[in-house]
Design a protein around this nucleic acid. Sequence first.
RNA 1: GCCGGCAUAGCUCAGCUGGUAGAGCAGCUGAUUUGUAAUCAGCAGGUCGUCGGUUCGAACCCGACUGCCGGCUCCA
Length: 620
Amino acid sequence: MSDKNTAPMTDLERLRHSTAHVLATGILRIWPEAQFAAGPPVENGFYYDLELDHRISPEDFDRIEAEMRKVIQENQPFERMPVDRKRALDLAKEGSLAALGPRSVPSKFKLDILQRIPDDEEITLYRNGNFTDLCAGPHVATTGEIGGFKLTNVASAYYQGDESQPQLQRVYGTAFKTEQELNEYFARLEEAKKRDHRKLGRELGLFHIDEDVGPGLALWKPKGAVIRRELQNFISEELRKQGYTEVFTPHIGKLNLYRTSGHYPYYQDSQFPPLVEPEVLRHLADEGCSCATLANMLKDGSVDGYLLKPMNCPMHIKIYASSPHSYRDLPVRLAEFGTVYRWEQSGELGGLTRVRGLTQDDGHIFCTDEQLQEELFRTLDVGIRVLSTLGLTDFRARLGLRDPDSSKYVGAPEQWDKAEQALRQAAKKVNINWSEEQGEAAFYGPKIDFVVKDVIGREWQLGTVQVDYNLPQRFDLHYISSDNSPKRPVMIHRAPFGSLERFCGVLIEHFAGSFPLWLAPEQVRVLPISDKHLEYARKIEHMLSEIGVRATVSDSSDKIGAKIRLAQLDKVPYMLVLGAREEQAANVAVRSRSRGDEGVVSALQFVERVQREIKEKKLE
RNA sequence: GCCGGCAUAGCUCAGCUGGUAGAGCAGCUGAUUUGUAAUCAGCAGGUCGUCGGUUCGAACCCGACUGCCGGCUCCA
């Protein structure tokens, strides 16, 4: 493994890493020619990458696991063996590393890894039974310590994570100290799957992705649209308080605009192809222009076209630039729920968390160097307030810095230093924990991202705050300073939710579909015991609707138990059971989705309560 | 985009070694008028993802495509 900043392994990681060795041992007993690369522990288990002509499929797992069980029963001790470089190289060359013994071909990946180990570093081998592997360790004492394990899936991965390197098979598995813990893990996994936003999205009728519309292009159904609208209203209100002004911009813009910004052609691969004007297209067709020629003409600018916008910022910049600005006007804060389109790779699409058309709660701040610090602070502050209102506290902040030895960035190093420092200061001031990661910056500046995990443990970037010294320069933006000279403003890109699609996807899983009252598509369902009380039920429904509460009446001929069941399955926060007793006294019998029967109150009391809870954005 | 897996009714799934499809729920109709998670009965619903091939015959075997799922890579 090339990972240098190796934190000490936890006991569980050590166990899993050892299980990876057992996996390799098992595979070699079946396919002695297998060539192994890296086999580390990962979040929920371990994997081992290998090259093998035989395509390992889940059907092979039984066989492999059976061999692994034997290795565990043999209770083989793990033996640590420091060796000198020469010895290790010899073993690799004779094929003995990650092998059960010498083979006719070298252990090529191990040989390669060996050659990457710095001279001053100790080289160790680990042996269990007759399996020897190049490995820094550590390991458990014996294979017998592995109480429960299971292979989970097989996937492919490039050697060293590099697309130009050979593609390997990656066998994933997990392991625990006991069989019981293993079973609990899978039970938890099953539970988590029930919260999958793709499943809930369908069950609750929130959104739909249709093959004929296109992959990664989400359709928001009425109930999902309610949630999105509420979120938009919420964020709009927060932004208004922060002095933002809202703007609207179109979905397409000239290619030239994005040439100026640098988005085209830098990120051409992740954009929908440009649109060309009909006359131009016809003209070129008459000349027998090929697609390749057209593509080149678009690239070099001899033909212009339109781009489905991959970013809102150039248009916001044009709004800023459309009128002169004095230092007295700054900061200028423009916000828009802007829909952008990106050509995500087909294999990466999924549900709402990775789409090709997404609406950002975008905003751009144009300010002076002196204002930068304060603006960053305020921006981070809003982001955190938004997340905590929703009870989303399980996120981490990531300060994305530039990769010092990469040429993909634009702008001067001094500006980058300044921007990175400003972000650090702002993060300190809002008092969040953050981790700094090199190479995670945008191409135009450093940023802070809010990152959360989904039900299966995958991390997704939500909100983001980015400093940009680059675009103001590319678009030659300025303001008139107090000494009457033109100065360059600094830009901040910010989107506390990131995209509404991804954010809603994460929220669906966060709430497991049980949205807090203020967000719930249906807030109250009125359930008459029989249709003798339908009229009263409708009266209550009207009373609620009048004040903007989303309420419906369950007017089927189902028994009350069935009506309740359906409302529970639809995850409606409040149910009002209405029969003769309630009707006579103008009361309602309140049932909460999460707390069950809450007893009888007057209709008026309930209305006030619901109104208050919505206003407070109360969480359960 | 790459590797692997999957694709049967709106949903969840069944369909033995090839003999042109079944259930539950949802839906519709009728009956029932009910007190805190499923009232009963009847009806309707599928060119088995698409296209091609093998075969007397394909949901089932083969191929291509599309989409989905899990990884990888990428991510302004």
